[in-house]
Design a binder for these strands. Sequence first.
RNA 1: GCCCAGGUGGUGAAACUGGUAGACACAAGGGACUUAAAAUCCCUCGGCAGCAAUGUCAUGCGGGUUCGAUUCCCGCCUUGGGCACCA
Length: 1014
Amino acid sequence: MNKYAPNEIEPKWQKYWEDNKLFEVTEDPSVKTQGREKFYGLIEFPYPSGAGLHVGHPRPFTAMDVICRKKRMEGKNVLFPIGFDAFGLPTENFAIKTGRQPAEVTAENISNFTRQLKMLGYSFAWDRVVDTTDPKYYKWTQWIFLQLFKHGLAYKKAMPINWCPSCKIGLANEEVVDGKCERCGTVAEKRNKEQWMLAITKYADKLLQGLENVDYIPQAKIQQQNWIGRSEGINFKHRVKDMNLEFEVYDSIPQTFLAQTFVIIAPEHPYVYEMVRGTEHEKKVMEFVEKIKKKKAGDKFDIDSDMEGIFTGRYSENYLGIGRDLPIWVASFALMDYGTGIVGCSVHDERDYKFAKMYNLPLHPVLFPKNKELAEKVRGTEIFYREPDGVLEEPIDFKGRKWNEVRQDVIEYIVNNNLGKRAVNYKLRDWVFSRQRYWGEPIPLVYCENCKNKKYHYVLVHGYYDPTNFAWLMWAKNELEKQGHTVDALDLPNYKTPNVNEQVDFLLDKVKIDENIVLVGHSMGGAVVMKLLEKINKKVAKVVFVDCFIRPEFVDRPRPDVEKSCDWKFDFKKLKKLSDEFIILADSSYGVINKGQDREMADLFNGKLIIANPIETHFRAKEEPEVLKQLENNGWISLPESELPLELPKVEKYEPTDTGESPLAHITDWINVACPACGSPARRETDTMPNWAGSSWYFLAYTMMKEKNGEYVWDRKKMDYWNPVNWYNGGMEHTVLHLLYSRFWNQFLYDIGVVPTSEPYKKRTSHGMILAADGEKMSKSRGNVINPDEMVEKFGTDAFRTYIMFMGPFDQAVAWDTNGVVGVRRFLEKVWTLQERVIASGAKQSQGIATSADANRLPRNDKLTTLLHQTIKKVTEDIEAMRFNTAISQLMILVNEMSKLEVLSLKSYGLCLQLLSPFAPHLCEEIWNKLGNKESISKSEWPKYDPELAKSDTFTLAIQINGKLRDTLELPADILEEEVIKQALELEKIKKWLEDKEPKKIIYIKGKLLSIVI
RNA sequence: GCCCAGGUGGUGAAACUGGUAGACACAAGGGACUUAAAAUCCCUCGGCAGCAAUGUCAUGCGGGUUCGAUUCCCGCCUUGGGCACCA
């Protein structure tokens, strides 16, 4: 027998796998995959840093490799891909320092990572490798962004960024240490900059609901839910005394509404100035506002310890009609972007309480009024009542009633009595998508002044029973006219008993239709717009449908007049060609038009679907800003899809410009382009996308068809076969943001019909970090990084992999211990040495080895057979549950037992190798081959255990007296309870402990324990 | 501060669903083989008391539920992850 030489056998088998394309897979059901279930295992693709792979990476990679190797042996068609998430700060900062091209550095890093990953023997489908910085890849990242833009989910907003006045560069949060620039130590400032935002908040509910049907580890689900932070509360209406000003106050704990004694408003709120303008309070209040704004802009602002406020001099008049006026304060801890930016305060909130104490504001510890109606409804009301102005010091006794029951009752009461209306709020904020950096995907948009200033003629068409002065039409007309457009918003004839054709003729008579027209229909007005278009058959600039329908089906009540108003037959093929832009605006509450018609219309027109939260159901309010937003043109024009990818141009300097724009702003040839819409001079967007972008859809890229030239083709058939991902493992540090962002993109892509499922990942698990030997995080600066190259060189890949799986529970952080690798290497040596005993058994090497079917033919009543079957069971179950450490310890127990035997059957040894092969694939391939098998062990069938053979025929009974272990007893497995008790009570030790006392109670846990109480 | 997850021998840890706490390894000590070393094999290995049998304490700390708690409940201490421009 040769010595175990991993450095010889490992490269040999890696080459064999690669040459034979063993882990490349096809999704063509007609070829190899017939009748086989697919399995898509995914790991978070690495960021190819210059430092190379460190031992933290292999933990999740090895885990998923073990799972995938096992699934393959179980007969699944397994896709296990790999790629590189290569855009981002570290490479860019390296480029700035060294003056090298980021693309060049990235290519080097990727090639080093590839070498290391191959060295570790992973069964990756290397033919599908992706690189987010490859223009062929980011073509689709840009394409997805354009879809988001076209569907109204990308918008610009002024947001503060960190800015170093000395380096003249925008800083990432990470680069600001103690409020100072990481590189030069200058105090960082905040600067306001227009940024592209993605409206992830519009998906808040979907992202929440989607969690119900996925199998994520509980922490991940909870973290996602908490991050989205949905709360259902009440918006209370307030009126400012002596002013014509009303506002709404959002309260997520409306149970306490009557205890409110003051109102606070966020310093940034525009109403603050309104309220104090021209009063004696103006100067002081506005100074305070400025001070807080500055404080908040700094890094150190702490919402709780920096609490302060100032009285505005204003009162909320006759609060909720109960005859009390509440003082209105501006306070540092009121947040503009949560709720309405105005908070009603009571003693029941810790912050409010602290604030009230600080400024000596009155407190009413009243939960409910002595209101007869409510008292009857909420049984036991009096127990919640306290005298006004008495400060509540002790907790409230709810006498068994649950907070939530009380809450629902109170909410109902408030709504029924018109004191406020239901409102939902989320903690989730929109996603800041712009980066003023070089090394990211360019945002494929162009800003065109000419398009922005272009004037249109708007035709606003109202619906059934909606005189124009009731809905938003007159308001929108006014707003659009202010912007210099011309508008027709006419009252249609006979709108109470409408005839669509009559209305169309009426409009044709009054309005000249040409390419400069924007048609806007509200509700039934949509039908008028469609019939009008059909009749004139001329192209218009834009068509907007505001909660329209193509069939008169209603959610709330039937409308026979509407049903009769036209034939409800439209030529969508023809209509579709009559404008380049169709916008379908739907009411998210679906209070009038049923869900589904919006999607259908968007499909029929190939239009942009926007699901909005109108101020009133069905957009009945006088002012609907979302409608106006869709009508306005902000000058941002998307590149035609055919011009993608928009490639990153090469630049000389990677530093941003002094103005805070990205380095791309230096390149005038690149920036100045002809507007794709009108041809006049326009400017490209110079911001790039964040690192999150490329990683928000990479799991789809793996399943896209990649052509010989590396071009990706969005092939639905292939995507439908592989998606969703069956099992996604990643770090806990990614369970909030990355997971949420990629779920958002996937849900959006599902909504526009280009991916098969709304949720991208069926199952999500997480691994713990590998720490350095000193228990600290591994980092270059600490100098405690362990390099896998060195480990593989010393101990071999198999020992390295097996140790990583053995070192501790997979989901917890563990410190690296090189000594531990020694122990595992010893174990593998033992496995290798066992070959001798197989040969000694007389088995011929040529005869081949056991398959799982043969396992049942192992001798019965043999201790090793029982252990072998127990091991098959345990290893199979443990891998599935990611309990790799105990799977390996079980294999160690098996191998220790085998080592004690003089002769080992070929069958037993073969089974042992199969079970070990996912962890130590090279070693097992080598021995498997030496034993005479022609095919790779990965092609063999995963062993199955026989439950009968896995059972032992005896067990050890533990005997407790008063909960303490006093003796044990070896008994046959099938013994009856009476016999157990009889035998136990006869034991000398037990007799001694009982001292002739009669047991009060005897509890028998079958096959385990007997508990005697005296 | 807020959200999430941990805390068991000298070390990494194990313990199914509330049922013998410390499996499997590492380190350490002792022994066998060897001229010697490496490798391998055997033994010991949570604390305290005891020659031993055995007893007793012990799963971050304090309480509770239970015949029985590392496991469930309440309070506290502590370590790690995330907190929106690191990825």
